[in-house]
Design a protein around this nucleic acid. Structure first.
Lengths: 285, 285
DNA sequence: TAACATTACGTTAGCCGTAACGATA
DNA sequence: TATCGTTACGGCTAACGTAATGTTA
C-alpha cells in the first residue's frame, strides 16, 4: 500500500514542475520531497523520474503514475465528503417552505419535536417541492397546493390572506376591498424572500414597481415613514403586529388567499407521525 | 486527507467483525486498532461506531464509510498495479509465434537487438495474431499468412516444409512422396506446442491418432525406440538434427509447405526498423 | 473464565527541517 | 549568482507494543 501523502506529493510535483515549488505548495521542505519521491520509486520498484544533476522530470511511467495518483486522491476526498455528507443527512432535517408565515409557525415546532437535529430551512416558490421531496433534497415541505401525484402524505395545516396596507390618506382606502389590478403600475415596498408570493405578484401585477427590501428592519422603517403601499398578512394582523398608522384593506383576488399543506414522502410517513398528529387545519392562522 | 492505512484497518474491521480479529489479520495489536478507529472518527468529525463497554459495531455512517474505504483501497491497489504494468510494458517485447521454428530462429536475434528487454514469447495458432497486434497484446508476430487488412508492416522471413519420418522398414518408404490422407488413421507421435501446425493436422487427418508429447526429450526417446511415424522439418533436416535410423519422406500437400512473415503494427515500423533490415526471405531456412 | 475494548506508559522507528554540497543556466 | 536536487545529521513526534483494567457472555 502506498501512503496517500506520497501520492499527494507526486501530484503536486506533476502540477508544479519542480520539487521545490511542490514543497512550497504543500508547506514542506525540498529534502522531504526528494525523500518521498525516492521512497515511492522504491516501494513501486519502478523508476518514475529522469534525473540530471540538478533537475528531475517525470518519465513516461511517472506521468502514468501521476494520473493514477490523482484518481486515488479523488477517491480519498470522495470518501471524506460522502461520509460526512451521510452523517449530516442523519442529523439534519431539510424543510422547504413556500412562504414566510409557515416558516415562522413551524420552526419552533420542528425544533421541539426533532430536538438535537439541525433544521435546514429553505424558502422558495414551491413549484419543484414534490420533485425535491422525491429526490431527498427535502424531507418535509410546506406547500400551497396538494401533491400532483402519488407517493406523498400530506395534511392541511393552515390558511393565509393578504391585505394591502396604506396610509389613511391613500385613495385606495375608498374601497372596502381591492383587486391586484388596481395596484398595477404603483410603487410598492416588498420584502424579499417571500417564497411563492413573489412569483404571484410578478404574474398578476407586471407593471408594478416593487421596491425590494432584504432587511426586515429597513422595511419596517420605510413602511412607517413613507406613503408606499405594502402587503400585510392576516396572520400578523390578527396578532397585532401591524405597522402603526396604516389601514389594511382586504384583497379580493383568490390568489391572495391560500391554504398551506404539510407534505412528506409516503415512505417517511412514520417518521413524521408525531408532527402530523400535532398539526391541524388551523396551525397556521 | 485520511491515511490509507487507517482505511485498511476500517475495511479489515468491517470484514472481521471485531477489532482483535482485524488486528490479527493485519499483524498489529488491538490497542493500535482502537487508536486508529478513534483517530478516523476524529479526523472525519463523525461517529462511526456504537460502543458498549466491551463491544463495538459500525453504525449506519460507519457502514457507508467502510464501503467507501474499499473504493479508496481499490484505487490505491490499482495505482500500484497499473504503474508496475506500464513500466513492465516498456521493458518487455511480446511476440507471437505461429510455429516452433520461427521461435527458435528469432529468439536469439531478438535478444541481441533488444538487449536489456524481456522477450515474452507466445506460441499458438496465428488466427488472432493481427487482432492481437492491434490490441497491443503483441508488438511483433511471426505468422504464416500475410495481413488480411491495412495497418501492418510485414516482410517474408522464411519457409518451412514438413516431412514424414519413418523406419526404413515402414511401407510408407515405398513412395517417393506422400499425402496427408495416406496418414489418416495411423498412430503418430507429435510434439505439443507446435502452433498452427496442430490445427492443420487436426483438419487434414481427422482420423489419425496423435500421441502428444509435451517433453522434447521424451519425444526423441520414443522416436528413436519406436516405429511410430513422426513429422520432421526441412529446417532441422538441413541442419543434420535428425532422428537416427529414420527416412524422411516429403509431404506433397501444399499445407505442409509454408512461408513465414514477420509482422508489426504500421505505427511501430520505425521501432523495429533494425530488426526488419536484418531479416530476409531466407532468415528461416 | 475467556474474549473483547480501552487506558496507561515507556520506547522507538521514521520523518522532518536545517545545513551543507554540487551542478547548472 | 540564483535556483535546483541531493546528502548528511540531529531532533522530535507520532505510532507502536506490552501490560493492566474493566466489562460481558
Amino acid at each position: 500500500m502506498i501512503d496517500i501523502y506520497i501520492l499527494q506529493q507526486l501530484a503536486a510535483y506533476a502540477e508544479c514542475g519542480t520539487l521545490s515549488a511542490a514543497a512550497e505548495k504543500l508547506h514542506t521542505s525540498q529534502p522531504a520531497m526528494t525523500r518521498s519521491m525516492k521512497k515511492l520509486e522504491d516501494e513501486l520498484g519502478v523508476t518514475l523520474f529522469e534525473r540530471s544533476k540538478n533537475h528531475i522530470s517525470l518519465n513516461k511511467t511517472g506521468q502514468i503514475a501521476a494520473e493514477y495518483a490523482q484518481r486515488v486522491l479523488e477517491a480519498d476526498r470522495d470518501f471524506i465528503e460522502k461520509v460526512r455528507q451521510y452523517d449530516r443527512s442523519l442529523h439534519t432535517l431539510s424543510v422547504g417552505f413556500c412562504a414566510p408565515v409557515p416558516q415562522e409557525v413551524f420552526t419552533p415546532i420542528l425544533n421541539t419535536i426533532f430536538d438535537g437535529m439541525t433544521i435546514s430551512a429553505d424558502m422558495k416558490d414551491d413549484a419543484t417541492f414534490f420533485d425535491d421531496l422525491e429526490n431527498g433534497i427535502y424531507q418535509l415541505a410546506i406547500t400551497h397546493s396538494i401533491p400532483d401525484r402519488e407517493g406523498f402524505y400530506y395534511k392541511k395545516c393552515g390558511e393565509e390572506s393578504l391585505f394591502v396596507s396604506v396610509l389613511p390618506s391613500d385613495p385606495l382606502t375608498f374601497y372596502p376591498e381591492i383587486h391586484l389590478k388596481d395596484l398595477d403600475g404603483l410603487s410598492i415596498l416588498l420584502l424579499t424572500k417571500i417564497g411563492f408570493w413573489a412569483n404571484m405578484h410578478r404574474a398578476k401585477t407586471p407593471h408594478t414597481k416593487y421596491l425590494p427590501q432584504i432587511d426586515r428592519n429597513t422595511f419596517n422603517e420605510l413602511a412607517e415613514h413613507s406613503a408606499y403601499p405594502i402587503f400585510a398578512s392576516d396572520y400578523f394582523i390578527r396578532r397585532g403586529e401591524r405597522i402603526q398608522g396604516r389601514i389594511d384593506i382586504p384583497i379580493a383576488d383568490p390568489e391572495c388567499h391560500t391554504e398551506y399543506y404539510l407534505v412528506c414522502a409516503e415512505s417517511e410517513r412514520d417518521r413524521f407521525k408525531r408532527l402530523f398528529s400535532l398539526v391541524n387545519e388551523k396551525t397556521i392562522y
